[in-house]
Design a protein around this nucleic acid. Sequence first.
DNA 1: TATAGCTGGGGCGTTACCTCA
DNA 2: TCTGAGGTAACGCCCCAGCTA
Length: 323
Amino acid sequence: MEMTVNARDREQHGLGLGLSLSLTIATAAPVESPPPPQRAISVAPISSHPAPPMPPQPQWWSGAGLFFSPSSGTDRSMERKQQQQQQQPAAVAACHGHEMPFLRGIDVNRAPAGRGSCSEDEEPAASSPNSTLSSLSGKRAAAARSGELDGDHTPRAGGGSDDEDSGAGGGSRKKLRLSKDQAAVLEESFKEHNTLNPKQKAALAKQLNLKPRQVEVWFQNRRARTKLKQTEVDCEFLKRCCETLTEENRRLQREVAELRALKLVAPHQYARMPPPTTLTMCPSCERVATADEAGRAARPAPTGPWGPVPVRPVFVDGPGRRS
DNA sequence: TATAGCTGGGGCGTTACCTCA
DNA sequence: TCTGAGGTAACGCCCCAGCTA
């Protein structure tokens, strides 16, 4: 309990492992074709890539790994939320600490008094061999009682009720393991839309012989996993940006030092040289910008100074089991 | 019209269980 | 067989938007 609070405290004060990268890059990118739609972008693990030839522009990419059609949103609220997600600078969200409320609360998973009072009797046996019931409490329990969680087609682990966390009040919660088929269907559904409206949820639950709550939880966890993976991809991406820019910075500093030395040693030669301050070189293609291009580069341009910027990698694959 | 209260849904952090090397 | 690590279902809390009185 205390550890939980401390961890949150650390997080709140940014003392944790917060990775904060703020890149304001004025480097230029080669002109490329416009970024493809995010949906179809597939990303191989970055670690398998050779070092990128150029620092991709941190285009303040469109959200935390949303690769589903926005039109798949089922109501305005969902669409809005998806838009919020897409508009959020994921890298910032990923690398800054979570802005969590300070008093997130005490561990309430512990032995709720009313636990076990729900569901046991209202849940029929399951067809899914791995399923068990989940206890409901608070808002969810209320929802269940109000009929949102119809237990009619609720799966239960084979004999789930037998070894139920009987007694002791704070019995251990049972955990189901979704079957491969169930997981596959959920996955397919998630690919179509990563949020569900109540109708879809109920339909899916019925189809899979699960409780709507279980479907809901699965989608929640799935979104979290996606976001986590995307965060990893983002951080890796930013790391590489940072490395490339650091190297570029070193190179430019060396160049400046050389020019200064030249100015001291051979001022006549130096005088014939173009003013170095006007030099703007694209770090990727090493093309020197014209003054006009450099001037444009100085202005904020949504697509990058010299053209469309590369799209940041987007995580697509679902998380797999460790090998 | 403005506002407070309610509700539903999602995000987040966490816990506990399960599987596997 | 034991054990630790990783995956994940499930939980509670918080926040926010929409609705309503």
